[in-house]
Design a protein around this nucleic acid. Structure first.
Lengths: 111, 111
DNA sequence: CAGGTATATACTAATCTGGGTATATATAAG
DNA sequence: CTTATATATACCCAGATTAGTATATACCTG
């Protein structure tokens, strides 16, 4: 199980994810959009699937792939400690997120 | 010139960046923190430097490395089209904050 | 069942990468 | 100038990865 960053290191895989960001797509659809040989697309999709980036559902002979956000969320979270380098007033932002979070906590039932 | 994602695919390099997120550090400092052989550290630093992730300044025999945010900002920007998957409405926002925030809370308490 | 379409997998060769070791360079200190 | 310290580079090797090609599997249609 490679890290999400290893998965994203491959340009074709990032391209696949970008396409899936807008909508669910079949293998042949991706193949045409990216002008990649079909086995390449299938191999990248397998890697993306095993890493949890995408999910397939069966539609007759086709497999329709759609995005799963979890691994990208982890990448997003990894970036968090670095955002203070390009986001002004991090303290204010943190206070803001804490407020939003505590509000939603209050609104929900206790965990 | 490899993409920023290729640079970040290497765990030791991500560890170096995390350490540099808190402060400037010398090579031997990184070497001890990460328990890596010195040539490994220097090699990774070279790759990080050439990709613009870090910058060195000379201090006697030592080289002090510090973070440069630009490449990480690009990664952050690449994630933008995907954020709607975990921040479209409040419920998803809550789930995201629950995961990310519990980590940062722990980190904050330790100080 | 036969033929066609869609997708997955197996296999190979070429390339790339990181670890390990040895060595080179730079600066300081005596 | 000599030695010590800090860092960088050169070189080789073993493992991993990708593209390319061929082939297998799954499902539909007639």
């Amino acid at each position: 199980m490679s890290s999400s960053f290893v998965i994203l290191a491959e340009p074709s895989r990032r391209a696949i994810l970008r396409l899936l960001a807008s909508s669910e797509r079949s293998v042949s659809d991706l193949e045409q959009q990216l002008r990649l040989p079909q086995p390449s697309v299938s191999k990248h999709l397998r890697i993306l699937r095993e890493a949890g980036f995408v999910q397939a559902r069966v539609d007759a002979q086709r497999r329709l792939y759609r995005l799963r956000p979890e691994p990208l969320m982890e990448v997003d979270a990894w970036l968090a400690p670095f955002r203070r380098f390009w986001t002004p007033h991090l303290d204010a932002l943190e206070r803001h997120l804490d407020r939003v979070d505590s509000k939603s906590r209050r609104r929900r039932k206790q965990r």
